[in-house]
Design a binder for these strands. Structure first.
Length: 892
RNA sequence: GCACGGAUAGCUCAGUGGUAGAGCGGCUGUCUUACACACAGUUGGUCGGGAGUUCGAAUCUCUCUCCGUGUACCA
């Protein structure tokens, strides 16, 4: 007998197996393997990141796919790594500098030393999340861990840049971009979040220069009035037609500015007149260009007013200046009114502050292979799951805009462009740079720095982080790996980065990896929310720490609990109770295994003598194989998890084990042997099916149950999935279904028996005697004994001639009438009432059924089997009614 | 504004035309020698509202309400 603790303790077990798997190289992919390939690249978390629930969900799914693929005999590469996350990482180190005494900025340190500091920080503190992923049990090939700025990856980024530049797809220009005044960098359109905001709408009087009146102009941004260069009205607006061509006085830094006509102005909005401020508004900029207007920039890069002509505002923060400017205008008597106004303000996803539209010199990319990328998803070359994301994806591609790829950062891939020293100043101001400049030798664009660096000046900017991560599926792999594992099989990621990452990877794949798609399937996970439906976030403090959850419930418990509630189509509301379920399940599994270990070895002699209950559970196990394969094939992870849960807890533990316990104590050897054999078979197959989602506990039990020995002591994760074909091999299908019918009847009868006991307030542990007066199904000694065990009875007597004393509680079962003789303890009246109640229920069902079958339309239109089913049901109720009525008369 | 998703038991969720389900929670028993992280029993629902299609609707169609997400414009 094995001495084991009563409760499963995951911590030690999980650490043990994690290190053993790694030491034995179980996760390592062999590109020379003859096995078919299966590959996933991890969505690289930020190197500054710590594990959150989204990662747990995402990586558990990837681990399930990877581990299952290994069991299916595939050579698996799950390639891990981290993203350098330009802004986040740079900000992290700048924060450290600001804490110093005296505080420093990156400018105090200087570019070269600052970048060195970030590397130091990264090497010391970065990649915590990698350790955390290991604690979750992720079976990544850690020997192949990549970083988006490492020595292998960085040249790829530069190479791609140079190629796209030569192709004319990357260009530089002075454009209106999204400017983050806190981070002082340009951002892409995707990094701006339009946010509903309570603002104020100011209506201001612009006096006509000829003194003939005034024009009311509404604005939310009075602090930019000094940069107004015109007022526009719609050419079709009858109210203002006569004013076009006249001039008004700009209220701050007074100056005559023209009234122009432009169709962009909406007649119905506000006053119908719009101030044109080309330097500080995207559409105003366009209007300005169209009409040849001047551009007056009155904001600094960090969002302060730069307008010496207006000393009252000069140097003020843009929001302080907003209030101040209104005071000034009001003082001049030019403020008409101030109204509350709800509008959408673009906020920086990075710093959270309102974006400034700003004219600046930036690098842009015209996306390559847009059509290939759109077609691939449209025609199913790349499958999105759930499929509806394909629509979102297609919509984005249709309206795709050039991507601003330069960032005014120091941490990241520096733009691989050099300007000839003597011309650098001029070139950096040039709005157009192209291959001609390269030919002239004025600029140098390449993955390798110029041979004579002293003659060149490199571009100051760095690339958007996503400009490196869009190469992730292939830039992470060496030649051998590419040959074996590219394109990758599945990508598992959140729908929030469908544009940032997924779409761009598809384009990059077609353009840079031999025209091949980067992956075959994309599985978009749900987003984990809190119980109020809010996104998990640090600031709300509603995000549980996965490591804490692992400590309390085990990694297996966390994985199982989360997957059980992760629907495929919608978001998950996270409830810690569900994780507790995962832990409880692990404990159940552990105890079931412990129970088996207490029974000793199965013998080879005598040959197992299967009872219906054995055949039943083995047949269900066979079905479980199919359910699991089907669910995983369809990426239905909650179905997979739920099927595993209910098979084990309900079918195996609650029913089967309870029905066979006596075999182990006092059964004849052949029956005992059949039970041990069946338990072993179920556990062996089941552990393998469960292993992808609960890798640690299954590995531990595989070992302690002795299954590993039969497989050369291989860890379970390296053992091929047992074939369901071996289950009940050679047994006739009709015999199997006969056994299953008997077993179902047994379990149902046991339920009825328990109900009877409960109804008569007999404690579960009270030993009673049941009498079965058999009906249609045969009840042999085996079934009778198991029934007694399941019902918590001393014995079950099968007696066809049994005459129940008046008032004996009875129930109808698939095995016939079931009696619970209590020797006159029962009140006849109470019993009569009980049966009467049952009869009422049955009468209702009969009425329903009769109504249905009496409806000729139902009988004519419904499929034959549905009608037959209904008839059967009715017959069933009728016979039950007859029996109950007979009992009732017997009572009298 | 447009698009997409969701609304089923107190909670978290299954259930795509044929007798409304699971787990948790609640309540009642039980330390029955694998498991009290458990066992047995039990209580919970006009399937968001309305209309339609159908013999039959949680399921299909339309519409409304509420919640969520994406996207566009906003002076």
């Amino acid at each position: 007998m094995t001495e084991l603790p009563k409760a499963y303790e995951p911590t030690v077990v999980e650490e043990k197996w994690q290190s053993r798997w790694m030491n034995e190289g179980c996760f390592h992919a062999d590109p020379h393997s003859a096995k078919p390939a299966y590959s996933i690249v991890i969505p690289p978390p930020n190197v500054t990141g710590v594990l959150h629930m989204g990662h747990v969900l995402n990586n558990t799914i990837q681990d399930i796919l990877a581990r299952r693929a290994r069991q299916e005999g595939k050579e698996v590469l799950w390639l891990p790594g981290t993203d350098h996350a330009g802004i986040a990482t740079q900000a992290r180190v700048e924060k450290e500098l600001a804490k110093e005494n005296p505080p420093r900025t990156r400018y105090d340190v200087g570019r070269e030393d600052f970048v060195k500091m970030v590397w130091e920080w990264k090497n010391k503190h970065g990649g915590i999340i990698i350790k955390q992923l290991k604690k979750l049990g992720c079976s990544c090939d850690w020997e192949r861990e990549r970083f988006t700025m490492d020595e292998v990856y960085a040249p790829e980024v530069a190479r791609v840049f140079a190629e796209l530049f030569k192709e004319g797809l990357i260009y530089r220009g002075r454009r209106m971009v999204n400017w983050d005044p806190v981070l002082c960098t340009a951002l892409s359109d995707e990094e701006v979040e339009m946010t509903p905001t309570h603002s104020k709408l100011y209506t201001i009087r612009y006096k006509l220069a000829d003194g003939s009146g005034q024009l009311l102009v509404s604005t939310t941004r009075p602090e930019t009035i000094m940069a107004d260069v015109a007022v526009a009205v719609n050419p079709k607006d009858p109210r203002f037609g006569h004013l076009v061509g006249k001039t008004v006085i700009r209220p701050l830094v007074e100056k005559e500015i023209p009234i122009i006509a432009d169709e962009h102005v909406e007649i119905d909005f506000g006053t119908g007149a719009l101030k044109i401020t080309p330097a500080h508004d995207r559409t105003d900029f366009e209007v300005g260009m169209k009409n040849g207007l001047e551009i007056i920039d009155i904001l600094t890069a960090d969002g302060h007013i730069n307008c010496p002509d207006c000393p009252e505002l000069h140097g003020l923060d843009r929001f302080v200046a907003r209030d101040k400017s209104i005071e000034l205008i009001d003082a001049k008597g030019l403020l008409e009114k101030v109204e509350a106004y709800d509008n959408n303000v673009g906020l920086s996803q990075r710093s959270g502050v309102p974006i400034e539209p700003r004219l600046s010199m930036q690098w842009f990319l015209k996306y390559p292979c847009v059509k290939e990328a759109a077609d691939a998803v449209a025609n199913g070359d790349i499958v999105f799951r759930p499929a509806r994301w394909a629509k979102t994806y297609a919509h984005w591609l249709e309206g795709i805009q050039d991507w601003c790829i330069s960032r005014q950062l120091w941490w990241g891939h520096r733009i691989p462009v050099w300007y000839r020293k003597d011309k650098a100043a001029a070139l950096q101001e040039a709005t157009k740079l192209d291959a001609a400049d390269m030919a002239a030798g004025d600029i140098y664009v390449s993955a390798t720095p110029p041979a004579d660096p002293e003659n060149w000046v490199q571009d100051e900017d760095a690339l958007d982080t996503w400009f490196s991560s869009w190469l992730w599926p292939f830039a992470t792999m060496d030649k051998e790996c590419l040959a074996k594992f590219y394109p990758t099989s599945d990508l598992v990621t959140g729908p929030d980065i469908i544009f940032f990452w997924v779409a761009r990877m598809i384009m990059a794949g077609y353009r840079f990896a031999d025209g091949k798609k980067p992956f075959g399937n994309v599985f978009f996970t749900s987003i984990v929310r809190d119980l109020l439906g809010r996104k998990m976030s640090k600031s709300l403090g509603n995000s549980p720490d996965p490591l804490d959850l692992i400590a309390r419930y085990g990694a297996d418990g966390l994985r199982f609990g989360l997957m059980r509630i992760a629907p495929t189509g919608t978001d998950v509301k996270f409830d810690e109770k569900q994780i507790e379920e995962g832990k409880n399940f692990a404990n159940k599994l552990y105890n079931a295994a412990r129970f088996r270990m207490m029974q000793g070895e199965a013998t080879t002699e005598p040959a197992p003598k299967f009872a219906p209950v054995h055949i039943d559970i083995l047949s269900k196990l066979k079905e479980l194989h199919a359910t699991v394969a089907d669910a995983l094939g369809k990426y239905e992870f909650n179905t997979y998890t739920q099927a595993l849960y209910s098979f084990f807890w309900n079918e195996y533990c609650s029913l089967f084990l309870e029905a066979v316990k006596n075999d182990l104590r006092e059964g004849e050897p052949a029956v005992k042997n059949a039970t041990l054999f069946t338990m072993d078979t179920v556990l062996r197959h089941y552990l393998a099916l469960l292993a992808p989602i609960m890798p640690h506990i299954t590995e531990e039990l595989w070992q302690s149950l002795g299954f590993a020995k039969k497989h050369n002591d291989l860890p379970l994760m390296s053992t091929p999935l047992p074939c369901p074909c071996s289950l009940l091999g050679g047994m006739d299908e009709t015999d199997i279904s006969k056994a299953r019918a008997l077993t179902t009847a047994l379990y149902e009868t046991a339920n009825r028996a328990r109900n009877l006991k409960a109804e008569y307030n007999l404690a579960t542990n009270k030993n009673v005697k049941f009498v079965v007066k058999p009906g249609a199904l045969p009840v042999d000694a085996d079934l009778a004994a198991r029934l007694a065990l399941l019902a918590g009875a001393k014995e079950t007597v099968v007696d066809a001639a049994y005459e129940a004393p008046k008032g004996t509680p009875t129930a109808l079962t698939p095995f016939g009438e079931l009696f619970l003789p209590l020797e006159g303890l029962v009140d006849v009246e109470a019993e009569r009432a009980r049966i009467g109640k049952q009869l009422e229920k049955i009468d209702k069902e009969i009425m329903k059924s009769n109504a249905k079958l009496g409806n000729s339309k139902f009988v004519d239109h419904a499929p034959a089997e549905v009608v037959a089913q209904e008839r059967e049901r009715l017959a069933d109720w009728e016979s039950k009614k007859a029996q109950l009525t007979a009992m009732l008369t017997a009572l009298a």
